[in-house]
Design a protein around this nucleic acid. Structure first.
Lengths: 330, 330
DNA sequence: TGTGGTTTTGAATACGTATTCAAATTAGTC
DNA sequence: GACTAATTTGAATACGTATTCAAAACCACA
């Protein structure tokens, strides 16, 4: 490990001067400047970011706590977040949520002294929220949010749930099953409430019978669908709370020889890139094209980090139906 | 920022003792131990990982330089790598390759003093290889490799290229177009060579006419396919060098009203999860199910970091055909 | 040549932790 | 109770950088 001291010795200057060449080149004289540069090259010197972080009290890195990237929604946001952060000079520490308990993830993040945190993975009532606030470093939530106020960026989940349900109702479906994740995640909560309210407005019952809570894994989705198909009165439509779930549902239905939408309609939410693929053509609900929640959130986060402004930013984007090929009237 | 000094003061002990409670609890007496623990809780003390890294000369973090995760292959490897590293106590710094020039990515990585590097994104003749070696920290390559020897994990790309080509030849295709990325990436090079050799063994010509080099972006793939379809003699089969490319090709063909495989056959390589989806059923070539290159590579890397063993590990896994629904005889 | 002001430089210090080394305390034995 | 051995503790130092502060060097001008 060659340090700035080594460079200093070789160049015949003090370590301070080496440091200045790096951070304040115009403040050092022509002659020494050249000597230092030459010595750096000769020794192949690389400044130690860890040491710099310690003294400057900023690591130039952020933590991303993301949902699983087999879900194309999170693949898209993660890509944007990592690349944008790099462009702004920040490294990204990526963590994937641990379903059910993110405590250990948060502990890692906190010790790493990141300059900011961007997370999609928080529960509405997550006790971790207080820790996060006490850290006194900027953090933003995207996709999901917490009950307490904070910076967040989300789609209008309630509206999305309504629109998806209305679409199915318009197509005369009555036996609709909602498949989603835990209701203490704001996305699922909103999408479920949209479903429930719209159904009940039409006098249609919503109960355990037609709402299935899962951990959103492929396996469990398949199990749920298998059970559904085994019932005497099969649903005519499935409302998957995310595109990712919808795509698992489709996979299983097709595998078992069902035709979609002839035998059963499927709708998702998110309007991911994959849902648009012409092999899939998933009917879904999503925001205007071009809005990437990861994008707006990371821009906000880095601006917050650098300007230290403290006012909250909360955005809830409207949604609309993308009517494609996996739903039809009965 | 509450430091170990603050804890020490409150507990009435020295900072050394606080440090020992953290790292060597059995070496500190009962009474002081308790006092320290209590003070830590009271102050909500969190050790500063940056400071620890500086003195211990290890950051407990690794860098992943990955191909784009819209390619499901990389989504799968990234997931495994991040989760496994965490389990072994390492944070993962994720970087996505910059097509054409990864210099700035490597600079970031080097300065961050990571304990190891795992990368899929290196060119066969990448000059960065020397820098990497000179760093004297463990690194492993997966998927792609460099000309110089090093730790790597790959599929047998040459074999894969042969098998895909043979499959198409067996189906009587002669007008086959190969679409891939730059040939200085070992994956594309091997897959292309497998294609070229197999074609030429059958006396079929391989030239610019039927080999299309792209940057593998959706846009450019679409452009290539558009041009192909516009030609008087359309190819009867497309050999996409990755599943990701194949899936873009499929999308475009379907969008333009073509039927696959009736109008044109498409084969990929990688056997990604997505290729197995029943909406897609992509014929492809891949390794035995269950082998995740990211998995074997990250296990090796962390073992190398912790044992400092220096012998090379090089694995080239055999491949086989996964005959699904996007190819047929003519 | 001398004065005052400006620029360039280096010594010293801080960041928060782990660790070495020697001092202090405790335990164990007769 | 005295001595030795074992355990527990704290002071000092190191890690590699940025920064403060004062000294040194340079400059312009009379």
């Amino acid at each position: 490990m060659v340090s700035s001291k080594d460079v200093a010795k070789l160049a015949g200057v003090s370590q301070s001067t080496v440091s200045r060449v790096l951070n304040n080149p115009e403040s050092v004289g022509e002659a020494k400047h050249e000597k230092v540069i030459k010595a750096m090259k000769e020794l192949n010197y690389r400044p130690n970011a860890i040491a710099r972080s310690l003294v400057k009290k900023q690591t130039k890195s952020i933590a991303l706590i993301s949902g699983p990237i087999h879900n194309p929604f999170f693949a898209e946001t993660t890509t944007y977040i990592v690349n944008y952060s790099k462009q702004r000079g920040y490294n990204t520490n990526v963590h994937f949520e641990v379903f059910g308990d993110n405590t250990s993830v948060f502990n890692d993040v906190i010790e790493m002294q990141v300059d900011g945190i961007i997370l999609s993975s928080i529960l509405m009532d997550d006790y971790i929220y207080d820790d996060l606030k006490n850290l006194n470093i900027p953090f933003v939530m995207f996709n999901r949010k917490h009950n307490e106020p904070g910076n967040f960026f989300e789609m209008d989940n309630l509206l999305a749930g309504q629109q998806a349900t209305e679409h199915l109702l318009d197509l005369n479906h009555k036996d609709i099953v909602w498949i989603g994740g835990p209701l203490n995640m704001s996305t699922f909560y909103g999408r479920y409430e949209g479903f429930r309210k719209t159904m009940e407005e039409q006098g249609l019952p919503v109960s355990d019978h037609n709402t299935k809570i899962t951990d959103t894994s492929e396996n469990e989705i398949h199990n749920v669908v298998r059970d559904l198909l085994a019932e005497r009165n099969r649903p005519t439509a499935i409302f998957a709370a995310t595109d990712s779930i919808a795509i698992y549902v489709l996979d299983y239905l097709l595998e078992k020889g069902y035709n979609v939408p002839e035998d059963i309609s499927v709708i998702g939410i998110d309007n991911t890139k994959l849902s648009q693929h012409h092999s899939i053509e998933l009917t879904t609900v999503g925001m205007d094209q071009g809005i990437n929640l990861g994008q707006v959130a990371i821009e906000q986060l880095i601006n917050d980090i650098e300007s230290k402004n403290q006012h909250l930013t909360q955005k809830t984007y409207p949604t609309k139906l993308y009517n494609r090929s996996t739903t039809r009237a009965i």
